[in-house]
């Protein structure tokens, strides 16, 4: 995957560069905002990691211009400021995720992975989770290559959870996908579907956690 890393601090930048390259990504690093802006005009990347405090041109401006050109490349904003307000501003301007310095390299790698996966979803209809592969177009599920048949609602629930691995999905969000607006169904119905899904696919490494009062979470494989 081709990643553009825009970070002006050499120590941190090189560390990030090495870490990402060790994961077999093709990474280019730039230290100047204006330069980054002009490179982004001509070159295509699968992910941009953007520091906000940059010489030449502020990171938020780079992001703003990128989005105004209609680019939908995922952007991970990395900021030393740690300002919550800036997180909000970045969200509004179209950043896809945030990382506040200092951060663990493992955290960076996880976020990069998630973003790349999400970006991939646009072109690749398959959601992969360990041994599980779900084709969102054909709506077919297979475990370790063996096709598995699931009822429609359970398949739908699985799709929702696969789309947000490692994140809490609330019952309301699930109900919206499962039942639409007209089909009334209580929270107990969702519990039932979760229970069935766990039973059927638990052995395939699908680990759905119940988060009290908040919803469900599909753990990383």
């Amino acid at each position: 995957m081709r990643i553009l890393l825009v970070e002006d601090d050499d120590d941190l930048g090189n560390a990030m560069l090495r870490a990402l390259r060790s994961r077999d990504h093709a990474v280019d690093r730039l230290a100047d905002g204006r330069l980054a802006d002009s490179v982004l005009r001509t070159e295509a990347f699968d992910l941009v990691i953007l520091d906000l405090t940059l010489p030449g041109c502020d990171g938020l401006d780079v992001l703003k211009r990128l989005r105004s050109r209609g680019s939908r490349v995922p952007v991970l904003v990395v900021t030393a400021r740690g300002e919550l307000e800036q997180r909000i501003a970045g969200l509004d301007l179209g950043a896809d995720d945030y990382l506040v310095k200092p951060f663990a390299l493992s955290e960076l790698e996880a976020r990069v992975r998630a973003l790349l996966r999400r970006g991939q979803g646009q072109s690749d209809p398959r959601l992969v989770h360990g041994a599980l592969v779900f084709d969102t177009v054909a709506r077919r599920l297979s475990v370790a290559g063996e096709p598995v048949e699931l009822p429609r609602r359970e398949l739908c629930l699985l799709e929702v959870l696969l789309g947000r691995v490692g994140q809490v999905v609330s019952k309301e969000q699930i109900a919206e996908k499962l039942f639409g607006f007209d089909d009334e169904a209580g929270p107990n119905a969702i519990e039932l579907y979760v229970h069935r899904l766990r039973k059927r696919l638990g052995s395939a490494g699908l680990n759905i956690r119940t988060v009290r009062g908040l919803g469900y979470l599909l753990e990383e494989p």
Binding site: Q167, V168, S170, R209, V211, R212, G213, L214, G215, L217
Partner: peptide, 20 residues
């Protein structure tokens, strides 16, 4: 806020829940 903290809780195998 609680939702955001859930992954960290899971990492420590702690049951973090919300009531309200």
């Amino acid at each position: 806020v609680t939702r955001e903290a859930v992954p960290a809780a899971l990492a420590k195998d702690i049951d973090l829940g919300f009531e309200g």
